[in-house]
Amino acid sequence: MLNVLDSAVPVECWSCSIGQSTTTLFCPHCSKIQPPSGGNYFTVFSLTPHLNIDLAALETEFHRLSRKLHPDRFARATDQEKEWSLADTALLNDAYRTLKEPLRRTEYLLKLEGSEIGEEFAGKDKANPSRVPADLLEEVFELNMQLDEMRMARKVGEEDPALHASLTEAKNKFEAMVNDVDQDLRKEWTNWDQSDQTVRQSSQNKMVSLLDRRRYLSNLLRDVTETLGA
């Protein structure tokens, strides 16, 4: 789950009482474990939210923190600290899984920055119910019809080579479209990372619609691949 709290508010370490500007899993002053609340997936890794991530460094940090949170290290700690070490481990795992995967990382950052994406916002944008261009919808629909036809023909034991060929062609085309979307997304990552707030807003909107487009395309690719492979 998202844990979006205001990370700009300084938090005080429960043990040494020194305030910190961001919440990390361990106090930078006294090294004591901190409760998991207050931060986000980026602050878990002492990162500011950004999209181009050094994955090797992320993995190294994940392993380092995992070791530091290991239950053996808390054998003689207080019950409260033991409880936090478990909760922090869960948070660390969620954070790592989300940040290492490009699409999940992008969605997470967009949510963190207030973009309304994902199922929980579905249908809320009433003034703009379809953020995907009509021609893409048209194409997605047509291809789904062809897929249906092919499945139907299969059921009665017929295979239409022409239909198979046109689906294969469509599959290649949609794969290329997904690649284009991914390239555009990467461009926006850099744009977002390097820009100020005003540019960031428009970059976020672009990423939201790229992700929308990608969802249609990848659903379709999944179905086409499944049907062709069956």
Partner: peptide
Amino acid sequence: LVGAPECGDVMR
């Protein structure tokens, strides 16, 4: 013809 970008459903 409408679609739900959140899940990729299409409906005509």
